[in-house]
Every structure is written in structure tokens, then in C-alpha cells.
């Protein structure tokens, strides 16, 4: 890496930093219960819960395991389970 003049940085480059390693609890998404409302996605601080075929899933590379998605899911479709490493 060569430094840029004035420390100008490139967009979206924090993706190099996989924050999934911070996680203690892991959200597990139950597709059968998911109604596709997208509330989990709106509240995710990492912005990594995405829709695929009307169902939502997270990106474990970055999920810090905060548990907001599970707390806010109106259908109880997300469960936090202890991460086993």
C-alpha cells in the first residue's frame, strides 16, 4: 500500500475488516417462520441482512452478533445461539 496525499480513502474499503470474529452469539434465521417483512434488515447496524427469494439472511463474515435482529423480529424467526469455535 502507498499512502494517498492527504489521507484520502477509497469507498467501502472497511469490507477488508471481517467483524464476524467479534461474535459471541450467532443469529440463526428460520426461513419457515420468516415472512419477509425486512425489519431485521432495517435495524442491522452492519447493514448486512439481505433478502433472497423473499427470505432474509445475514452475512456471518461481518455479523457482530448484537442480537437486534432477533429482538425485533415480529415472528420470532431469528434465534441467537452461542457461537462454537
Amino acid at each position: 500500500m502507498k499512502l494517498s496525499v492527504g489521507a484520502v480513502a477509497e469507498p467501502g474499503s472497511t469490507r477488508a475488516n471481517k467483524t464476524g470474529t467479534w461474535r459471541t452469539f450467532r443469529p440463526v434465521f428460520n426461513a419457515d417462520l420468516c415472512v419477509g417483512c425486512g425489519i431485521c434488515s432495517q435495524f442491522c447496524p452492519e447493514g448486512i441482512i439481505h433478502e433472497k427469494n423473499d427470505k432474509y439472511a445475514t452475512d456471518y463474515d461481518y455479523c457482530k452478533g448484537c442480537g437486534i435482529c432477533a429482538a425485533e423480529c415480529p415472528k420470532g424467526a431469528i434465534k441467537m445461539v452461542l457461537e462454537v469455535k
Binding site: 499512502l3 496525499v5 492527504g6 489521507a7 484520502v8 480513502a9 477509497e10 469507498p11
Partner: peptide
Amino acid sequence: PKTFGAFADPSLYTEFRYM
């Protein structure tokens, strides 16, 4: 869309000052 005004940690700050 560039980012202006990022912060530098001790591994890089000196080099920015040197520049």
C-alpha cells in the same frame, strides 16, 4: 465517492507528517 479526513493510527501517522 472518496473519503476525506480519515484518521491514521500510529503505524501511519508519522508517514503522513513526513509527506
